[in-house]
């Protein structure tokens, strides 16, 4: 293949060095940008002038975060972008806090379900984002405080958990598979506020357990039970991931049968 880049004619005079040429180009570009920006600042209408009621400081901070990290998919003013992300109008601060604090949002990619990962924002930032979405469109909110477990009754929570939650999250809160790559996640890392928010808002494939289905006291009870399971020390030994008979069956072959076949080899070899 031939190189198509233009090369100066062999006899043409060389005027300036490459570096100085680039420097002057950059300077001119900078000046042009400054001019355009100045014009925009002078003539564009101010942001403050639009809204009817001014937003709180937290919401403004949240908006700044939103405009840098969420706007690509959820769109301008959280109205959603077709094919990328849903509108956040009316989802409330509870949903935002849950999604952002557990690291599910910002999502890494479009797939069956966003998974829990290292959060991108601090708790404070997540709540600022929540305040922004809340003041933008309203929606369900979490009660104040960090400790809900102590307000609940563990044994009643257990009964509610087994009826409402275990069919997807499993008895041992280990989670389980749903159809087509979707799943109910494990609850081993969830905090009180996250569990409450999940029940209240029904993230991803989870149904919503509104206050008419599980009133706040029911939710506190369930949270108390989940926390009790998180604190359970597996009195029987290593819990094998608490996956039930599948790992138990693996263990009996990988440990029991293998150990005893070696024992048989050893004993039969002694003759």
């Amino acid at each position: 293949m031939k190189n198509e880049t233009t090369v100066p004619a062999p006899g043409a005079p060389r005027q300036r060095g490459r570096v100085s040429r680039r420097m002057s180009g950059a300077l001119r570009m900078f000046a042009a940008l400054m001019f355009a920006g100045g014009l925009y600042l002078t003539f564009a209408p101010g942001v403050q002038a639009q809204g009817a009621a001014p937003m709180s400081d937290a919401a403004q901070a949240g908006q700044a975060l939103y405009d840098t990290s969420c706007i690509t998919c959820h769109g301008n003013n959280a109205q959603g972008v077709d094919g990328r992300g849903p509108s956040l109008i009316g989802v409330g601060s509870a949903a935002v806090e849950f999604q952002v604090e557990t690291g599910r949002m910002p999502a890494a990619r479009q797939e069956a379900q966003a998974e829990r990962k290292q959060p991108q924002f601090t708790t404070d930032q997540a709540r600022q984002l929540g305040a922004y979405i809340q003041e933008l469109g309203g929606g369900p909110q979490l009660p104040a405080g960090e400790d809900f477990a102590s307000k609940g009754k563990v044994s009643r929570g257990g009964e509610l958990f087994r009826i409402n939650c275990s069919s997807c999250h499993a008895f041992s809160t280990g989670g389980g598979a749903l159809s087509s790559g979707k799943y109910a996640p494990t609850l081993t890392e969830s905090t009180d506020r996250q569990i409450y928010a999940a029940m209240l808002t029904g993230p991803q494939n989870m149904p919503v357990f509104g206050d008419t289905e599980l009133d706040p006291q029911d939710k506190y009870d369930i949270i108390a039970y989940v926390r009790a399971l998180q604190d359970d020390q597996d009195p029987g030994g290593w819990g094998l991931g608490r996956f039930g008979p599948v790992t138990e069956g693996l263990a009996i072959f990988l440990v029991g049968v293998v150990a005893l076949v070696f024992a048989a080899l050893w004993i039969a070899g002694k003759s």
Binding site: G158, E159, R162, I163, S166, S167, C168, H169, A170, F171, S172, G174, G175, G176, A177, A184, L229, D232, D234, P235, G236, G237, W238, G239, L240, R242, F243, G244, P245, V246, E248, G249, A251, I252, V255
Partner: peptide, 27 residues
């Protein structure tokens, strides 16, 4: 002594309405 098996206390009492994800019989 070392491996926990069938932790029945995590499962709760049987009620007809109760079911769990990952319910398996023994291998």
């Amino acid at each position: 002594g070392l491996f926990q098996i069938n932790p029945i206390w995590l499962f709760g009492p049987y009620e007809a309405a109760v079911v769990s994800a990952g319910s398996q019989p023994d291998w």
